[in-house]
Amino acid sequence: FDIYVVTADYLPLGAEQDAITLREGQYVEVLDAAHPLRWLVRTKPTKSSPSRQGWVSPAYLDRRL
């Protein structure tokens, strides 16, 4: 999967189903980028939180090589 970094805090609107909150600087794996406005991502697990999966706007993501 492609690795992206979150460029700004992402707080989903209440109406968005299956969306997750992301923090600036967080790394995520993009699982599904087929839709231009919503990408399915999975967060990297940390010592304090397990990995999470949900939909985010790709405008908040920047690809890492």
Rank of each mutant, 00 (worst) to 15 (best):
D2W: 14
D2A: 14
D2P: 15
D2S: 10
Y4M: 05
V5D: 01
V5G: 02
T7D: 02
T7H: 04
T7P: 01
A8G: 07
A8C: 10
D9M: 05
Y10Q: 03
L11A: 11
L11M: 12
L11W: 14
P12A: 09
P12L: 08
L13A: 13
L13R: 11
A15M: 13
A15R: 07
Q17T: 14
Q17M: 12
Q17R: 11
Q17K: 14
D18W: 09
D18P: 06
D18L: 06
I20C: 04
T21N: 09
T21L: 11
L22S: 00
L22Q: 01
L22I: 04
R23N: 08
R23E: 10
R23L: 12
E24W: 09
E24G: 07
G25H: 03
Q26H: 04
Q26P: 00
Q26N: 04
Q26C: 05
V28M: 01
V28D: 00
V28E: 00
E29H: 07
E29F: 13
E29G: 02
V30M: 02
V30S: 01
V30Q: 01
L31Q: 02
L31N: 00
D32M: 06
D32Q: 06
A33W: 09
A33I: 05
A33E: 05
A33M: 14
A34N: 13
A34D: 09
H35Q: 09
H35A: 06
H35R: 06
H35G: 10
P36Y: 04
R38Y: 08
R38N: 04
R38H: 06
R38C: 11
L40W: 10
L40V: 02
L40G: 00
V41G: 00
V41H: 01
T43M: 04
T43Y: 06
T46A: 06
T46F: 08
K47W: 11
K47I: 11
S48H: 14
S48W: 13
S48G: 14
S48C: 12
S49M: 12
S49A: 12
P50A: 09
S51L: 06
S51C: 06
S51M: 10
S51E: 07
R52H: 09
R52Y: 11
R52D: 06
R52T: 11
R52G: 05
G54E: 04
G54C: 06
G54S: 03
W55K: 02
W55R: 03
W55N: 02
V56G: 01
V56I: 10
V56H: 01
S57H: 11
S57Q: 05
P58K: 04
P58A: 06
A59R: 10
A59S: 11
Y60W: 05
L61K: 00
L61Y: 00
L61N: 01
D62K: 15
D62V: 14
L65W: 14
L65I: 14
